[in-house]
């Protein structure tokens, strides 16, 4: 990709403008249409499937802006599906925004079907990728052997759904493709959390400099400064860990992506919680959107199974297996 004459950061401004347009769009199809028009849904899909064929690092600034801008669309899922189904007809449909799709992140079905959950905006899309117990996955069509049921959801922008599958049919991904998709998802989720955290920190820093108490802005008080400095450290830790995970010089990309995601979940929630604290009583109100970032970070942690991944980290430590000898990953 080094011969490209644009860098991942060149996508930030476009992405920000699209997220702003999406914020006032009528519904999910309208938002996906705006994202597809800007090429963002197909940013990772091969050019043969109507995508831009770019590497993962180009999706990072886009999803960062999506996280900062409260995007109410399954953009991460759309990007990953359009890439994973490369060469199949459905890839172009998803990349072009013609088929609305998402992923049921938790649970697996057997050959006969089953119930899976945590599908962001699952009740508003046409197709859902469902994981199977044998490590493969299938893209089922809702209303055709599969049903979606809107679920209680902590996340307000991307409410989750439970998917009940009775007839298992649709385009499939093999176990290797699923593994690659899950690996990429860890980095891309971290990018969403990075954006949400940056916005939470910016709101907290702005508020602390505007709000005057005892004749001084809150930001003049060292206790408040140190709160904000720790939030800044958390944001930069997420940013640097994403960069390391994507660097050609990273010795252990699999462990790095996992740690980036697990760490981002804790750090992202920390930033949102502390931004609420810096806002005082205002921070606890529904209208101040910090709780939306907090809900998002916590929901992404559940979708990406951050808690379970910590067990994997420990298993690797106990196995004495050198992280650097990790298997190469697609």
């Amino acid at each position: 990709m080094s011969d490209l004459d644009f860098s991942p950061e060149d996508f930030s401004d476009t992405a920000r403008a699209v997220m702003e347009a999406c914020a006032t769009a009528a519904d999910l199809p309208a938002r996906i249409a705006l994202l597809a028009e800007a090429g963002l849904t197909g940013i990772l899909a091969p050019e043969d499937d109507g995508g831009m064929g770019l590497a993962l690092d180009y999706a990072v600034p886009v999803l960062r802006e999506a996280g900062a801008g409260f995007l109410a669309a399954p953009l991460l899922e759309t990007m990953l599906l359009a890439r994973a189904f490369a060469g199949q007809d459905v890839a172009a449909e998803i990349a072009g925004g013609k088929t609305l799709a998402t992923i049921a992140w938790v649970g697996e079905i057997s050959g006969q079907g089953g119930v899976v959950g945590r599908a962001p905006l699952g009740a508003e899309v046409a197709s859902v990728l469902v994981f199977r117990t044998d490590g493969t996955a299938v893209l089922v069509t809702l209303g055709d052997g599969a049903e979606a049921q809107a679920d209680d959801s902590l996340d307000l922008e991307r409410p989750e759904a439970t998917i009940t599958v009775k007839d298992v049919n649709g385009p499939t991904l093999d176990a290797t493709q699923v593994k690659a998709l899950l690996h990429a998802a860890q980095i891309l989720r971290s990018a969403l959390i990075l954006g949400a955290s940056e916005d939470a920190l910016k709101r907290a820093a702005d508020y602390a400099q505007e709000r005057v108490q005892f004749g001084k802005p809150l930001s003049a008080y060292q206790a408040v400064q140190h709160h904000l400095a720790r939030q800044c450290l958390a944001v930069e830790t997420i940013r640097n860990s994403i960069a390391r995970s994507l660097s050609a010089h990273c010795e252990t990309p699999v462990a790095a992506a996992r740690a980036t995601f697990v760490g981002s979940c804790d750090l992202g929630a920390f930033v949102a919680e502390n931004a609420i604290q810096v806002h005082g009583g205002m921070g606890f109100t529904w209208d101040v959107p910090l709780h939306r970032h907090l809900r998002f970070a916590r929901t992404l942690a559940a979708q990406g199974k951050a808690a379970e991944l910590k067990e994997d980290v420990m298993q690797q430590l106990l196995s004495g297996q050198d992280k650097e000898k990790e298997p190469a990953h697609g």
């Binding site: 830790t237 790095a256 760490g263 910590k310």
Partner: peptide
Amino acid sequence: ADVSVNIDLLKGHVE
């Protein structure tokens, strides 16, 4: 496990 994750995050800063 949290310590191990922190070590990776630290490598992110350094690298």
